[in-house]
Write a protein that binds this DNA or RNA. Structure first.
Lengths: 209, 209
DNA sequence: CTCGAATTGGACTATTTAGTCCAGTCTTAT
DNA sequence: ATAAGACTGGACTAAATAGTCCAATTCGAG
């Protein structure tokens, strides 16, 4: 308990083995869920052995923790790319379109790789904390973008960019969840459009009067 | 496969047994997840025997299907009560407050009883279809409320009440997911406030000019 | 009451699963 | 080169789990 792995890594070979296991587990748990992915399946997919797995992880919970971390890194890296140059509302709309396209190409299956982990892991303290951290970093990317969108305009009083990002991320997550359920990108489109309108209205100059 | 249960129910006693099993399974799967709830645990909680379970359900998938149905009924009954008399934006805000309070009293744990089932079951056709149906009925309640809010006002062109309901439900689901992750009701509040503003703006008379 | 059908109890099986263990191989630093 | 220790292969165990089976009990209609 409390350790990230049973043993620290001493060699590059060991690090590669560990990464191979985590990557395979991340892929499998993404499509099958955490509880439905057995360690044997992970070992088969990563061509590793039992002793390798238990050399690097204390138990399945330890592996799951690493998987959460890995999935967060994947999602955040993708989002960082999409959001890095965000500087206008049109850029935000292009971000929306990219997410919708991404969802469409996977037939809306799977939902958000990070969001899907929540219902299975949110009652376990350590995974929950890492998921929360992942979402917080995601929000930070949005906040940075919103700041650039607002630019040098007069800040509208009472508008908190962090809260704007939280609402936007909620719309995204809920949109993906409904898209996954209905197998249609429409809920995602509607939710993100609502969020973008909300951002646009909030970043405008104070209403006259 | 394809059957709701292994056997039709012939007596009231049998119906009661079946209901007892489904209720216990629904409770357990709500807090532990579907995959992490064993049939033995369901039987212990419902004080039923193996043969009773397999008399009424073909297999675990059959039971899960009944659980999805049951959970949808529970959630929709609660929402129907909350949304039945919805006729104004202030009523909508009270609905928001009720959901936030509900989330707070459970310490934001568990998320939405229906939404939490999505990530575990959305890749199985029958459960997914029932979840989609549940969300559709939920949206219908919202649409009915929005129609009353709009009342006899001039309909703003291009506003689809169904789309408004979808976006609102997405905000709710995403808000609950983030609330569950961060153990704070704040994301839920922000997401629902955004949705309500969006509804208010959409149901207003067409902007002048 | 009585028979056939519905219902029930619970032992039993086959499989899967997480986790253990140890002997053996590779790496690295000296 | 060589020893210490990192790393690996895979057999093994104990527990949990889904699902089977049949004898026993209860119910409802006549």
């Amino acid at each position: 308990m409390g350790e990230f792995s049973a043993e620290p890594i001493r060699t590059a070979r060991g690090a590669a083995t560990r990464a191979r296991i985590v990557d395979a587990a991340t892929d499998l748990m993404r499509v099958q869920g955490v509880a439905n992915t057995s360690l044997d399946a992970v070992l088969a997919a990563s061509k590793a052995s039992k002793s390798q797995l238990y050399h690097y992880f204390a138990d399945k919970d330890g592996l799951v923790l690493a998987v959460v971390q890995r999935q967060a890194e994947r999602v955040l890296a993708a989002q960082e790319t999409l959001l890095r140059d965000l500087a206008s509302l049109d850029d935000l709309r292009r971000w929306r379109d990219a997410l919708v396209d991404l969802s469409r190409t996977t037939d809306c299956a799977g939902g958000c790789p990070l969001g899907s982990l929540v219902s299975e892991l949110a009652e376990s303290p350590q995974p929950r904390a890492r998921l929360a951290d992942g979402f917080a970093r995601w929000e930070a990317y949005l906040v940075a973008g919103f700041r650039k969108i607002r630019g040098s305009a007069v800040p509208r009083p009472g508008v908190d960019l962090t809260e704007l990002a939280t609402a936007t991320l909620a719309a995204l997550q809920g949109g993906l969840l409904l898209a996954q359920t209905t197998r249609s990108t429409r809920p995602l489109e509607l939710a993100l459009d609502m969020a973008i309108e909300h951002v646009a209205a909030s970043l405008q100059a104070p209403a006259p009067g």
